Simulated scan of single mutants.
Amino acid sequence: MHQAQMAAYLTIIYSANIGIEVEEGEIQRRVQQTPAAAAQAANDAEAAMAYCRDEILPELDLVDDAVIRPTLELTEIMKQIQKTMVKRNHKMIDYDRHRASLNKLKVKEERSFNEEKQIYKVEAQLETATQDYDYLNDMLKQQLPQFFHLKAQFIVPVFERFYFLQCRIYGMIYARCHELLHANEQHFVTYEMGIEQGFQWREQQYSARSDLENMDLLKSGGKAWLKVSGGSNNSKLSLKERAELREQEDKAMIGYNSPSMVAATSSSTNYNNNNNTTTSTTMISSPPAYGLASSQQSSSYQYQPSPQQQSRGVPPPPPSTSFGTINKKYVVALYDYDAQAEGDLSFRKDDKIELVERTADTNDWWTGRLHGITGIFPGNYVSEL
């Protein structure tokens, strides 16, 4: 079953439809150019493992009928024998107790009438306990060797049947894998090598480990992701780790507020004395990589002033955006967020934000209103109420 499921996953990974837009709610797959031979090999692997699974399932039913069920029946018989042995031990305790009581009464030189009556009573109990113990003990001595002999005779054919069923199942798996291998030999280069030799050869061709170690997700002991989930205030970090992460955040803020960055984000106004017009060009730095850029999530409305307004230098009015007042939806902030670009909405943890517009993906930028201010914010910073 695991082999069949893994083959199905490989078919998805090597699918030629990767990167094509999918319906809302489904996973967007990454873009990848899949060679036709690789896609065919993945499809062959999925088909081979599916055939293999369908062929093996009836054999597993034979394993259940010929091996597992008879073994369970033998286990039940052994439980009954164990109960008989425990009962025999209890009868031996009764036998020893009655015999000790009888000896204690008989050693007395002078006995009362009640003690004489007690002797007869204990003798009867001792005789019954002796008969019960002898019966169970003799039965175990006679039949246990027969049981052990029959048990050995039972185990041998069951074990042989199990062995041959295993050989048959592994033979089916080998046959399907052999067909798959020889139909796609160009994708199974290491099949004639040993396990370690094949691994070393693959590592020489491409080292996935080095690429993984260079991923931002695994840097700093795997704590780089904490910057978007609390940063240096995260309680899961030690004091030293908090200090190091806070220092890195301070350096990033210094770089963000450097003169070159300020110059990039300032507005430059050029005046033309000939036509008395004003042209404003604004350079806005890119927003944080929480999802889509803020410019993509902002309103599509763009004000176009008339020539008369341009000649008079009339400033453009703010874009008019209508928001519905019925069925308002709100979200609650999970972390603090400070605006990093024009149009971002700042908020503090536990703030209640009116949700104006959202997407299906929490990693995108959503639009909300707080304290009369409307802006965009990362969707993974809030939780819906």
Rank of each mutant, 00 (worst) to 15 (best):
residue 2 H to K: 14
residue 2 H to A: 05
residue 3 Q to E: 04
residue 6 M to R: 15
residue 12 I to W: 08
residue 14 Y to L: 13
residue 14 Y to N: 12
residue 37 A to E: 14
residue 37 A to M: 02
residue 39 A to S: 09
residue 46 E to D: 09
residue 55 E to L: 13
residue 56 I to G: 06
residue 58 P to W: 02
residue 68 I to T: 11
residue 71 T to Q: 09
residue 78 M to R: 09
residue 82 Q to A: 15
residue 85 M to N: 13
residue 85 M to G: 11
residue 91 K to D: 05
residue 102 L to A: 13
residue 102 L to N: 07
residue 106 K to N: 13
residue 107 V to C: 09
residue 109 E to D: 14
residue 113 F to P: 00
residue 114 N to S: 06
residue 119 I to D: 01
residue 125 Q to F: 07
residue 130 T to I: 00
residue 134 D to I: 06
residue 153 Q to D: 01
residue 180 L to F: 12
residue 187 H to K: 04
residue 187 H to S: 04
residue 188 F to N: 02
residue 191 Y to H: 09
residue 210 S to H: 13
residue 219 K to R: 15
residue 220 S to V: 01
residue 226 L to A: 05
residue 227 K to C: 06
residue 228 V to M: 07
residue 228 V to E: 10
residue 229 S to T: 14
residue 239 L to P: 00
residue 260 S to L: 15
residue 267 S to C: 07
residue 281 T to I: 08
residue 283 M to N: 15
residue 284 I to T: 15
residue 286 S to Q: 11
residue 286 S to T: 14
residue 293 A to L: 02
residue 298 S to D: 13
residue 308 Q to C: 09
residue 319 P to Y: 02
residue 327 N to I: 08
residue 329 K to A: 07
residue 332 V to E: 03
residue 335 Y to C: 01
residue 341 A to K: 07
residue 342 E to M: 12
residue 347 F to D: 03
residue 349 K to E: 15
residue 350 D to Y: 11
residue 353 I to E: 03
residue 356 V to W: 02
residue 362 T to V: 12
residue 362 T to C: 03
residue 378 P to T: 03
